[in-house]
């Protein structure tokens, strides 16, 4: 994240984590559940943590391993009083869900904290020679991750292990919150979103681009983790991917159908996606599916100067229309 903080700030992390726990303790009696993160099957992973009783709060852990966007759970818990711990990016999904009336503001209690970025497990795996199956130890500070794996110690620069979305993050603090633990880092929403990677890809020839996707999607197993991890894919039980009426996709194992699903997914998310990257992170075979949504968002930015999930009062551009759009030239007949 673009905010240089010193090594000693690890103490800060512990401090705001305690403050956050206090906030949750205060709010929990009025809530059915508060969702955060806790440790998982090895020291390099966290897992979503559903806190229902006070003692559950002790297990809460905030760290660069808190990768999951917990907003994904909100539409499924509609009608319940839910507390949710959010990173800056996650909070944008909450805002977008509010914008679309998919959740009720009064049912949601939002706990924010200053996020300094989360790791990209694929990057760590690469740095460890392709294997993270035997992690014995993991400790993180602002600047490094220290990992012990197979009796070998690795000290990895945090900046290089962060998810791409974090290196160019403009919203480290929750854009909406009821409680905020710790000191805000400062959002920089006025800066332009970074679509350099998309632009580089756009400059390739059509056969190069298509060839790339043919290769990447060959290994897609159609598990739809990309869809189900997406906080804004809310019609998942009635998805075009499996529907026979309309019958848009077949169950054949071919790239055409797999790509078609990604196109449907991306179009449904144009101007709604906050680029949290859960689709890509969830993919068990590491297909870079986020790029489709980034491409759509880049077009939305250029056409409507709009960014999803920042203003709860705003209407996403494709959910409304203007009689005369500023950047869409009518075809002259």
């Amino acid at each position: 994240m673009g905010n240089p903080r010193s090594e000693s700030n690890k103490g800060d992390q512990v401090k705001f984590q305690e403050e956050l726990k206090d906030n949750i303790r205060k709010a929990l009696p009025e809530l059915d559940v508060v969702i955060g993160w806790c440790g998982s099957f090895d020291p390099l992973h966290a897992t979503p943590h559903f806190m229902r009783r006070e003692e559950d709060i002790d297990k809460l852990e905030i760290s660069p391993l808190s990768v999951h966007n917990l907003a994904t759970y909100l539409p499924g818990l509609r009608g319940k009083k839910v507390g949710i711990v959010v990173k800056g990016c996650d909070s944008r999904s909450v805002v977008e869900l509010l914008q679309e009336n998919l959740i009720n503001r009064e049912d949601i209690t939002i706990f924010g904290f200053p996020c300094t970025g989360v790791v990209d497990q694929s990057k760590i795996k690469k740095a460890l020679g392709g294997h993270t199956g035997n992690i014995e130890f993991c400790d993180m500070s602002e600047s490094v991750i220290v990992i012990k794996s197979e009796d070998k110690a690795y000290t990895l620069p945090m900046a290089e292990m962060l998810a791409d979305k974090c290196s160019s993050c403009r919203y480290p603090d929750a854009v909406i919150s009821d409680y905020f633990a710790g000191e805000k880092i400062g959002n920089k929403g006025e800066e332009d979103a970074d679509y350099a990677a998309v632009e580089t890809f756009e400059n390739l020839s059509v056969p190069e681009r298509f060839g790339y996707w043919l290769k990447e999607f060959d290994r897609c197993i159609r598990c739809y983790a990309c869809r189900n991890a997406c906080p804004l894919c809310v019609c998942r039980d009635h998805c075009a991917a499996e529907s026979r009426d309309p019958h848009w996709l077949s169950q054949e194992n071919n790239v055409r159908d797999k790509l078609m699903f990604q196109v449907i997914h991306a179009y449904h998310l144009a101007g709604r996606c906050t680029e949290c990257g859960e689709c890509q992170r969830a993919c068990p075979v590491d297909i870079p599916v986020l790029m489709f949504k980034q491409k759509m968002n880049k077009e939305i930015r250029d056409t409507f100067q709009y960014e999803a999930g920042v203003d709860p009062e705003a209407t996403p551009p494709l959910l409304s229309f203007k009689m005369k759009e500023e950047n869409i030239t009518e075809k002259v007949w």
Binding site: V33, T47, P48, F50, T72, Y73, I221, R222, C223, Y224, A225, R227, N228, A229, R236, R244, S250, Q251, A282, P284
Partner: peptide
């Protein structure tokens, strides 16, 4: 509670054998 209802676990499972016919 945290399950996303995706099929990653089953499709990666060497012993999961359910199928569809279409």
């Amino acid at each position: 509670a945290k399950c996303l209802s995706c099929g990653a676990c089953t499709y990666l499972c060497p012993s999961c054998y359910c199928f569809n016919i279409t």
